[in-house]
Design a protein around this nucleic acid. Structure first.
Length: 278
DNA sequence: CTCAGATCCTGTGCGC
DNA sequence: TGCGCACAGGATCTGA
């Protein structure tokens, strides 16, 4: 489900229901996620107020009156606000009961997500300590990316999906950004020059921001807290369009596997690096 | 160090 | 209709 825009939309959607509420109970129905939910979650949470909800990379961080809850939605996780008496469905692994009568319910069919309790300084937690800059921040700029790409043989698509380079850029938005930048996804990162990164970096920011503005991308099962799907799916240029004509030139969209991920591109609009003026 | 591939898990969609 | 296979929005680990 989630890349950065979807996590951002999720956080914004649930915040009004959670802020300043007290957690009065938790229900664990399936403890085994990517990392097991702490067995003592209930005593760690109950009686504490949710003071703030922030996002770092694709993580959501709930600041409690004491300590933090760290969540990652993995590949298939969702958060919804439900009424306390709504019967749980399949893969509803975890509930947080709030004193306003609402329940924060976590559903995750593939169980690649996680929920952790952190006592203090979450930025120093091993999962967060080595993350690259936020893509929408000033720290992520073309000079930075050019510098990190020096001598790198790794293909540019896998490179921008690395969390130690820049966070929050997943398969959809990496694919879409490279299309708009006219860069073949297989191009070695170190072969791109300043001109390329001056183009690519603002495009990544723009694609992510437009996706946030559109409420994210709903491929199958992403819905915001208010039930709305993400309309960015209607703006996808190449992702999920294998063998369909490119909107720009009509050429058939192709796919290759890079870093184990399907990568769609237009062979005409995104020529192999050596065939261009680079 | 760098990079490709396997891996965790369940659901869906396709070809036969 | 049913079966087997490929693939799916992520991130980590292994090993070449």
């Amino acid at each position: 489900m989630p890349e950065l825009p979807e996590v951002e939309i999720t956080g914004r959607g649930i915040s009004p229901f959670l802020l300043h509420q007290i957690i009065i109970g938790t229900v664990i129905r399936q403890q085994q996620l990517r990392v097991a939910i702490p067995s003592e979650l209930n005593q760690l949470c109950v009686g504490k107020e949710i003071k703030a909800i922030t996002r770092r990379a694709k993580y959501l961080l709930l600041q409690l009156s004491e300590g933090y809850l760290l969540n990652h939605l993995g590949m298939s996780g969702h958060l919804r606000i439900v009424s306390q008496d709504l019967a749980p469905g399949k893969h509803d692994h975890l509930d947080f009961l709030l004193n306003n009568g609402h329940t924060l319910r976590y559903n995750d069919p593939r169980r690649f997500g996680l929920w952790l309790y952190i006592e203090k300084s979450p930025e120093h937690h091993p999962l967060l300590a080595h993350l690259g800059p936020e893509p929408l921040s000033e720290a992520f700029n073309s000079a930075y990316l050019l510098n990190r790409a020096q001598q790198k043989n790794q293909n540019i698509k896998a490179f921008i999906m690395r969390n130690d380079i820049v966070v929050g850029v997943g398969n959809i938005y990496a694919t879409e950004s490279l299309f708009f930048a006219g860069i073949h996804p297989q191009t070695p990162a170190g072969k791109l020059n300043q001109y390329d990164f001056d183009k690519l970096v603002p495009i990544i920011k723009q694609v992510l921001q437009q996706a946030i503005d559109a409420g994210g991308t709903t491929l199958r099962d992403f819905y915001a807290a208010d039930g709305k799907p993400g309309y960015f799916v209607n703006q996808l240029q190449v992702y999920g369009r294998k063998n369909l004509p490119c909107f720009q030139c009509g050429t058939s969209i192709q796919t290759i596997m890079l870093g184990g991920r399907s990568s769609a591109f237009c062979p005409n609009c995104q020529p192999i690096a050596h065939a261009t003026s680079r």
